[in-house]
Simulated assay, not measured.
Amino acid sequence: MRRLTHLAVFCLVAAVACAKKDTAANSTAADTTTPAAVAAPTPPPPAPLTLADVAGKWNMRAVPDSGDTTATTYVMTATADSTWTLQFPNGLKVPVKAMASGDSITVHAGPYASVRRKGMQVTTDGAFRRQGDRLTGTSTAHYKTTRPDSVLHLRVEGTKAP
């Protein structure tokens, strides 16, 4: 009889232990089937920038990334087509080819007489993004020379002329 009692107690303990594990397993299973927190949808990308979006006159300022920090200023006339112009304070007017790509405008000018390095020819390539009423970006000047400093990187910023 004593063995029967021990067996009954053992079965009761085992049943209680199994019941707790089943409850834990059931709650875990329930947790995995509950809907997870839904992430906020990704905002749509901005609409592509067009040449017409930046048409007008822009007062531009280009400053080298390092070394000489003297700014080169010019007025960039942007149109809805791909032919733009740069007008420097000395009167030099340079045609520019512009292209819109995604959220950027890329430009190419030259070769033309450099206003930074007298007596040298330069070709420039740049990329701008519109930030409100400003254009910001970079430009790389390639000078026609055999000297080691034939490339100049500049930060460019411009505001729309009234």
Rank of each mutant, 00 (worst) to 15 (best):
F128R: 09
V94S: 10
T77R: 00
C11L: 15
A98V: 03
L135G: 05
R130P: 11
K118M: 08
V13I: 14
A30R: 08
S150D: 13
D81A: 14
D133P: 03
A62L: 06
A36G: 05
A80I: 03
T23M: 04
T33N: 09
T5K: 05
T145Q: 00
T32R: 09
G56R: 04
T32K: 11
D125M: 07
L135T: 05
V13A: 11
R147G: 15
M120T: 10
T42Q: 05
V16C: 09
A141Q: 13
V16F: 09
R61P: 04
V151C: 00
P46T: 12
A36K: 10
V151I: 10
L12P: 00
T73Y: 09
P43L: 02
T69Y: 01
T42L: 12
R116G: 08
T50C: 00
A29G: 15
Y74N: 07
P48V: 07
S114P: 13
V9I: 15
F88N: 03
P44Y: 02
D103Q: 13
S101T: 08
Y74G: 05
T124S: 14
R134H: 11
L154H: 12
V96I: 15
K118L: 10
H6E: 05
R134Q: 13
T77D: 01
A40T: 09
A37Q: 03
R155A: 15
P35R: 08
T106S: 10
A36R: 10
S66F: 12
T136R: 12
R117C: 03
T106A: 08
A161M: 14
V156Y: 09
A36E: 06
F10R: 05
R147Y: 11
M1K: 00
T42H: 02
P89F: 11
A19M: 08
A78D: 01
Q87K: 14
T145F: 01
T159I: 15
R61E: 15
L51F: 11
P48N: 11
R155Q: 15
R117I: 14
T138C: 02
R155T: 15
A62Q: 07
K97G: 01
G158V: 15
S101G: 07
F88G: 04
R2Q: 00
T28N: 05
A14R: 03
D65T: 13
N59S: 14
V13G: 00
G91P: 01
G91F: 01
T145H: 02
L7S: 13
M120G: 00
A39T: 07
P44D: 12
T79V: 06
V122A: 01
Q121L: 13
D31I: 00
G158I: 15
N26S: 09
T23I: 11
V54Q: 07
V151W: 02
T79R: 02
R129F: 10
E157T: 14
T77H: 01
F88C: 02
T79C: 00
R130S: 14
R155I: 14
R130A: 15
T33H: 11
T106G: 06
